[in-house]
């Protein structure tokens, strides 16, 4: 029981990290109508910037500087490239973000090499927060959760209650009206792109010490992000929350399951399939596949199921103009 609780908590910290990433992606998609394919690369860049500047300024300086650096770069890219492409529709913009993603990864490879860099948990945050079932819950995981919650809460408050948030929300649905009222919509779009990228950079800076800091982290996280986004529902913040929680906990808890589909059927009193020999064909080997072994693939299986049964995602009603 304790083990399950600990796994759930570990899953939660991973989910929150995913949420930090996906919320930035959702924000950008909502306002600009563009799926940002460079998001995984922003995440990677955040980790590298935090590590690099951490060499000079210490861990906290790095943590602060990384999102700023990523935001600056993203803002510059928005002004220099995306804004010019906007009149030609969303496809060129999407391709441009894809190109930026590749360039960033290759640049990181050139600058820092393809081997992982030793971006480690600072001494002050090492050790355990509490002990459960003979295992530690690492302080740093708690820290990641706290940072993610703080960043998300702050963005939510900003969007909901501040004047800037009001303009951003209005620009989502009534861009021309907002422009007519004398607000600079293009600047709002730049700011939102930069802010979304900053959230991603923060996720990289705070999450990488738990994982591995290497150029490939962009690709491996980038693919998962789109699964999270689509499972939850494209363009809704509520969807991002649901998607991140489902995927994070699914990957973590599936590992804890000992058993296969055949065992489930057996439990339900249907013995015939369980008797099939495991090496006898594709269906039988699928039935006997341990759930734990498929843990890393489950988000994508779920994505397929969601796309077939509920293409609008788990939360969003089809066709509704729900703003964030």
């Amino acid at each position: 029981m304790d083990t399950l609780l600990l796994s759930t908590l570990n899953g939660l910290s991973y989910s929150l990290l995913l949420l930090l990433l996906v919320s930035g992606l959702t924000l950008i998609f909502s306002l600009l109508g563009v799926l940002n394919f460079a998001h995984g690369s922003f995440y990677m860049l955040g980790a590298y910037l935090a590590w690099q500047s951490g060499q000079w300024l210490g861990f906290w300086g790095g943590l602060l500087l990384a999102p700023l650096g990523v935001a600056l770069l993203a803002g510059g890219f928005e002004i220099a490239v995306l804004r010019r492409l906007r009149p030609q529709g969303h496809l060129p913009e999407l391709l441009a973000t894809f190109a930026l993603g590749v360039v960033l990864v290759e640049a990181a490879r050139l600058l820092w090499g393809s081997a992982a860099v030793p971006y480690a948990i600072p001494a002050a945050l090492q050790g355990r927060l509490f002990r459960l079932g003979g295992l530690d819950f690492a302080t740093y995981r708690g820290f990641v959760m706290a940072v993610a919650l703080a960043a998300l809460g702050l963005s939510w408050l900003l969007l909901r209650y501040s004047r800037i948030g009001l303009i951003v929300q209005a620009a989502l649905t009534h861009a021309r009206m907002v422009a007519a009222l004398g607000h600079d919509v293009a600047a709002v779009q730049t700011a939102v792109f930069a802010a979304g990228a900053a959230l991603s950079g923060l996720a990289g800076a705070v999450g990488a010490p738990l994982l591995v800091t290497e150029p490939d982290m962009a690709a491996s996280m980038g693919v998962l992000l789109f699964a999270v986004l689509l499972i939850g529902g494209l363009g809704s913040l509520r969807g991002a929350v649901v998607g991140a929680l489902v995927v994070g906990e699914l990957q973590t808890l599936a590992v804890a399951v000992n058993g296969s589909l055949a065992d489930v059927l057996l439990h339900l009193g249907w013995a015939a399939p369980a008797a099939w020999p495991a090496r006898d064909g594709l269906l039988a080997s699928l039935l006997h596949l341990d759930v734990a072994r498929a843990a890393a693939l489950l988000p994508y299986v779920l994505l397929l199921i969601v796309l077939v049964l509920r293409p609008q995602g788990l939360t969003r009603a089809l066709g509704s103009d729900e703003a964030l």
Binding site: L6, A292, R293
Partner: peptide
């Protein structure tokens, strides 16, 4: 006995929890 998908798993903490359990 656990088999992990090659190069796919990012968080090994659930495996460690199983080892401990």
């Amino acid at each position: 006995e656990d088999f992990v998908a090659l190069g796919q798993v990012k968080d090994f903490s659930p495996y460690i929890a199983k080892v401990q359990a």
